[in-house]
Amino acid sequence: MFYWFLKWVALGPLLRAVFRPRVEGAQHVPAEGPAILASNHLSYADWLFMPLTLPRRVTFVAKAEYFTGTGIKGWLQKTFFSGSGQVPIDRSGADAAAGALLSAKRVLADGGLFGIYPEGTRSHDGKLYRGKTGVARLALETKVPVIPVAVVGTDVVAPPGKKFGSFTRPVVRFGKPLDFSRYDGMENDRYILRSITDEIMYEIMRLSGQEYVDMYATRAKEESKRVEKERVEKEAAAAADAKKAS
Rank of each mutant, 00 (worst) to 15 (best):
T53P: 07
R106K: 15
R226W: 11
T70S: 15
S92A: 15
A245I: 09
S82H: 15
G115V: 00
H28I: 00
L108E: 10
P55E: 04
E211V: 13
L15C: 06
Y129L: 02
F49R: 02
R106S: 12
S123D: 03
S103F: 05
H124K: 08
V172T: 03
A158N: 14
L140F: 01
D198S: 07
G112Y: 08
E235V: 11
I200K: 05
A104E: 02
D184R: 14
R56S: 03
Y3I: 04
A35R: 02
I116P: 03
A237V: 08
K78S: 14
F180R: 06
F174H: 01
T142P: 04
K143H: 14
G69S: 11
G131I: 07
G111R: 04
A45R: 10
S181T: 12
W47V: 15
P51Y: 01
D90H: 10
E228H: 12
A45G: 00
G165Y: 04
M186N: 12
G69R: 11
A240T: 09
W8T: 13
D95F: 03
G83W: 06
S181G: 07
E222Q: 15
N40C: 03
L11E: 06
L207N: 08
T197D: 09
A245G: 03
F2M: 14
R16I: 07
A238H: 10
R206S: 13
D241I: 06
V107T: 06
G112Q: 02
G120M: 03
L108S: 09
A96Y: 06
I204R: 09
M50A: 11
V23E: 05
F60L: 07
E235C: 11
L54M: 07
G134I: 05
W8F: 14
L207F: 01
K63L: 08
E228A: 14
A150L: 03
I89K: 12
V144L: 01
I147M: 00
P159M: 05
E32F: 09
